[in-house]
Design a protein around this nucleic acid. Structure first.
Length: 277
DNA sequence: ATAGCGCCCTGGTGGC
DNA sequence: TGCCACCAGGGCGCTA
């Protein structure tokens, strides 16, 4: 599993700030057009070549490259890694990588190589100059690491929502950046069963869940992402070890009982039936 | 408006 | 041991 979620995307973003911010793009090479979900590859290449990366932002699981070029209005390069996308930086123009889809040459001589085994990732351009106006992120929920995040805000986002809390947490309109790994982790830490109706959480439970979402993500960012298939821009793996995710049958870190795996909203969900209610 | 589905894709797994 | 059907999984677009 690769599963880039918010901490993995944030780790990549920090690397990209160092590698690409202030640099200009000297070349674009598309090896697999399937990741250009909504744009023409010639247009994509033409508009990016010669443009400068003014900033690298993140919203939820999206990377937003703020692009500027002479005589053209600023725009955004929008990248979503989906399930299997990854970006590596190389000092020189290395041979084509396995599952390579997009290669970005920078004026420093280094290259950014995007690989994506499933080609589910999404690279496209957005006309918006301000990143809050990028079409993909306008209806997205709050960032759990922003100062405004709280149990009250989570409660507000959950109000009137039908469905099970695990499934609702994965909806990016409710909270930005939470995916399958960190949803399971946050629910475990808060002691809340993934099978609870989202609307049944009381104020105290919303507080606990909001806190656990933020602390889980914060810890994972500090670890440079989760341990496993994911690697950062320079190929270094993350060190965050999930306590329950992927641990079916392993002893619960709290009570020692076996962790269970069930399906919630069509997603694999690991939890402790004794510690989560 | 919102919820529930199928679809996209390929490596790994489990059954025989 | 080999083969193959099956499964995971985020987000989008369609339907009800």
């Amino acid at each position: 599993m690769l599963l880039p979620e918010m901490p993995e995307v944030e780790t990549l973003r920090r690397g990209l700030v160092r590698a690409a911010a202030g640099q200009s793009i000297t070349s674009i090479r598309i090896s697999d057009e399937r990741v250009l979900k909504r744009c023409d590859s010639d247009d994509f290449t033409e508009r990016l070549t010669g443009a400068t990366v003014r900033a690298v932002n993140r919203r939820g699981k999206y990377l937003l490259f703020e692009m500027v070029v002479a005589n053209v209005a600023p725009f955004h390069l929008v990248v979503h890694l989906n399930m299997k996308g990854g970006i590596r930086r190389f000092d020189t123009d290395v041979p084509q990588q396995k599952y390579e889809c997009v290669r970005v040459g920078l004026n420093t001589g280094s290259v950014l190589v995007y690989t994506d085994m499933w080609t589910w990732g999404d690279w496209h351009l957005d006309e918006a100059a301000a990143f809050t106006q990028v079409a993909d992120v306008v209806s997205m929920g709050p960032e759990p690491l922003d100062s405004g995040w709280s149990g009250a805000l989570l409660a507000e986002r959950l109000a009137g929502r039908r469905g099970l809390i695990k499934a609702v947490l994965l909806d990016q309109k409710v909270v930005a950046g939470v995916g399958n790994i960190y949803a399971d982790e946050a629910l475990f830490t808060a002691g809340i069963s993934p099978k609870r109706q989202a609307s049944s959480l009381d104020a105290g439970e919303c507080d606990a869940l909001a806190t656990s979402i933020a602390s889980t993500l914060e810890t994972a960012v500090r670890c440079g992402g989760s341990l496993g298939e994911y690697v950062d821009l320079d190929g270094n793996p993350g060190t965050y070890e999930p306590r329950v995710y992927g641990g079916k049958g392993r002893p619960c870190p709290l009570c020692g009982g076996p962790l269970m795996k069930i399906s919630v909203g069509g997603r694999g969900t690991t939890y402790c039936p004794d510690c989560q209610h």
